[in-house]
Design a protein around this nucleic acid. Structure first.
Length: 232
DNA sequence: AAGCTGATCAACCGCATGAAG
DNA sequence: ACTTCATGCGGTTGATCAGCT
């Protein structure tokens, strides 16, 4: 036994399969929580933080492995637009994915997409995919030739529109994002704000027919949005 | 075949927050 | 009210892998 005051030496680095088994068995027996006690009780020479992280990111049931689906990627993009780097919140809305997964995916796939990525075998395929995504993006951000979609936010009068556009109203139902655009209904003379994240985009990347904007703009996200400093 | 380089992802670190004493 | 401890979160690091030269 170490002398009193001496910090126990915790093991670091990658987890071995046998360690995973021990941790899994321990959590299944004793339940989650009290992580600092886990290392002592289970005999794992890992700190509580490490045990918690390993369980949460890898051993927990229903964890999804493998690449993100297009649907998940879209969700991440949309949620990041809403919430910024609130990885835990974003992950909470993507079943089976952890905050670490989402963060890593964003940093490697979505953030600063670099044309010089090398992992792909066929560059042309990569370019084509990127171009397709850009096209989708362009389509999203260009005004449609139809009436405002059902997903557009009705703003009302020009005065109300100006109010919404004020930066100081960001997070309070205002501050129109740069990639949203504004339309005016010729009949009602009301203004509408349309944002890429709201659009039913002809069944391309952003399809929300079965997931209307307000569906994920739920009360929780709404509450969270009050203080976020993103670009919405 | 070997070395180099960039991408990926698991894990660590520091800080913030909240509960308990 | 203050301190301590546990937990959670986001940023960062480092090991490993895959593609390229």
């Amino acid at each position: 036994m170490e002398s009193e005051g001496a910090k126990p030496e915790f093991k670091k680095g990658l987890w071995k399969p046998e360690e995973d088994l021990i941790l899994k068995a321990h959590v299944e027996t004793h339940g989650e929580g009290n992580w600092s006690a886990v290392s002592k009780r289970s005999g794992l020479m890992r700190c509580g933080k490490s045990c918690r992280l390993r369980w949460k990111n890898y051993l927990r049931p229903n964890i999804k492995r493998g690449g993100m689906s297009q649907e998940e990627e879209d969700m991440i993009i949309r949620m990041h637009k809403l919430l910024g780097n609130r990885w835990a919140l974003i992950a909470g809305r993507i079943p089976g994915r952890t905050d670490n997964d989402v963060k890593n995916y964003w940093n490697t796939h979505l953030n600063n997409r670099s044309p010089s990525r090398k992992r792909k075998t066929i560059d042309s395929e990569l370019d084509q995919n990127d171009e397709e995504k850009q096209n989708k993006s362009k389509r999203l951000c260009s005004p449609s030739n139809s009436q405002p979609t059902c997903n557009a936010i009705a703003v009302g009068s020009a005065e109300e529109l100006e109010e919404k556009k004020r930066p100081e109203n960001e997070g309070r139902g205002g501050a129109v994002s740069s990639d949203a655009w504004i339309q005016r209904d010729a009949q009602s003379m009301n203004y509408y704000i349309e944002s890429p994240m709201m659009l039913d985009n002809n069944a391309t990347t952003f399809v929300y027919e079965d997931e209307p904007f307000l569906d994920y703009w739920d009360s929780f996200v709404m509450f969270e949005s009050l203080d976020f400093g993103g670009d919405w």
